[in-house]
Simulated assay, not measured.
Amino acid sequence: MSSSPGIKPREHVDVMYISIETAIALVSVVGNVLVVLAVCVNRALRNTTFCFIVSLAVADIAVGVLVIPLAIILSLGFKTQFYTCLFLSCLLLIITQSSILSLLAIAIDRYLRVKIPTRYSTIVTQRRACVAVCLCWILSFLTGLVPMMGWNRRHAGGNLSSSGDIVCEFTAVMRMDYMVYFNFFGWVVVPLSVMIALYAEIFRVIRRQLNRRAEATCDGERYYRKELKLAKSLALVVFLFAVCWLPIHIMNCIDFFCPQWSVPKFTLYAGIFMSHVNSALNPMVYAFRIKQFRVTLIKISQRCGIRKPKEATLCPAGTRAQTEKGDVDP
């Protein structure tokens, strides 16, 4: 296969990787744009939990618009300045961190909702939720840009050439001790462990409340059943995140702790592919598991000309009361 100037010849596995990544990017962008649009048009979805879900959707849109194209560029083997390549690599980490911190914020939000239901609305306001989202993104930028401060491979062999240009690859500029100890153990394993503990406690509290049915009112039982359904959906999002992201981090651990073991290129690409496909899965979880979200997506498709809607509004009848309470019918 012929190659363009400055680009290494493509192998068949590289071409397949680029094709799959392009398809994932398109699905991710379209699906998550619909998530944001659904929240914008349906007042019943404009609560604090969906504020964090929108933050997660924005991160997933960034995966399709920014991360995947950058990953493809890094796989092409362009020659560029060291710090230019390092900055592009750091952008990949920033988006990943924003996703996991958004998931953590969602878990904390649902925990407070079932643990202190009577005081939840006064403690978790829309303004505080927006502040929390901003903090998540600020923290993501700070942790993702740590390699720019010096924790990188600038002084590794080959990166101090006289020309100043290097073949831009993620592993050529990013140190594996940073990826394993700081990024994986510190900012993936710890948040995931906290989320697992929070959802375990959420399910325990909800089950305990539902077992007290004889003492509870019908409204109380309905409240906790809705919370249980939504908690299951959001816990599924966390589970998919772990399943999709752990393989690539495990490969990094193998590369760091057992450098004599070489990870095949196909396996490496499969791990990268799984980490990116996670961004396309989240909208599907919302659509299949959350009724109000699914109904809103159907109405949006009708408005776009697939089928003319009978209703004059995007919010179905009977949702105004839910909007006032901030509840979503899963």
Rank of each mutant, 00 (worst) to 15 (best):
Met1Gly: 12
Ser2Thr: 14
Ile7Leu: 07
Met16Ser: 15
Tyr17Phe: 13
Ala23Arg: 01
Ala23Asn: 04
Ile24Val: 08
Val29Cys: 08
Leu34Val: 13
Val35Arg: 00
Val36Pro: 05
Val36Thr: 08
Leu37Thr: 12
Cys40Arg: 12
Cys40Met: 13
Val41Phe: 03
Asn42Asp: 14
Asn42Arg: 05
Asn47Arg: 00
Asn47His: 03
Leu56Tyr: 09
Ile61Gly: 03
Ile61Ala: 00
Val67Leu: 07
Ala71Glu: 15
Ser75Met: 11
Gly77Ile: 08
Gly77Ser: 02
Lys79Ala: 09
Lys79Pro: 14
Thr80Asn: 03
Tyr83Phe: 14
Cys85Tyr: 02
Leu88Ser: 10
Leu88Met: 15
Cys90His: 08
Ile95Arg: 06
Leu103Met: 05
Leu112Val: 10
Leu112His: 10
Val114His: 01
Ile116Arg: 10
Ser121Tyr: 08
Thr125Gln: 02
Gln126Met: 15
Arg127Gly: 11
Val133Tyr: 05
Val133Leu: 07
Trp137Gln: 07
Thr143Trp: 08
Leu145Gly: 01
Val146Ala: 04
Pro147Met: 02
Trp151Leu: 05
Arg153Ser: 08
Ala156Leu: 02
Gly157Asn: 09
Val173Gly: 00
Tyr181Val: 14
Asn183Gln: 13
Gly186Ser: 04
Gly186Asp: 07
Gly186Pro: 10
Val189Ala: 06
Pro191Lys: 00
Leu192Asn: 12
Ile196Trp: 06
Tyr199Arg: 00
Arg208Gln: 13
Arg208Cys: 13
Arg212Phe: 09
Cys218Val: 15
Gly220Cys: 05
Gly220Ile: 06
Gly220Lys: 03
Arg222Leu: 13
Tyr224His: 09
Leu228His: 07
Val238Ile: 04
Val238Met: 03
Phe239Glu: 13
Leu240Cys: 13
Leu240Pro: 13
Phe241Trp: 11
Cys244Thr: 10
Leu246Pro: 04
Cys253Gly: 07
Gln260Val: 04
Leu268Asp: 15
Met284Thr: 12
Tyr286Phe: 12
Ala287His: 06
Ile290Val: 14
Phe293Cys: 07
Phe293Pro: 11
Leu297Ile: 13
Ile298Arg: 02
Ile300Trp: 00
Ser301Gln: 10
Arg303Asn: 14
Gly305His: 04
Pro309Gln: 04
Glu311Ser: 11
Leu314Lys: 03
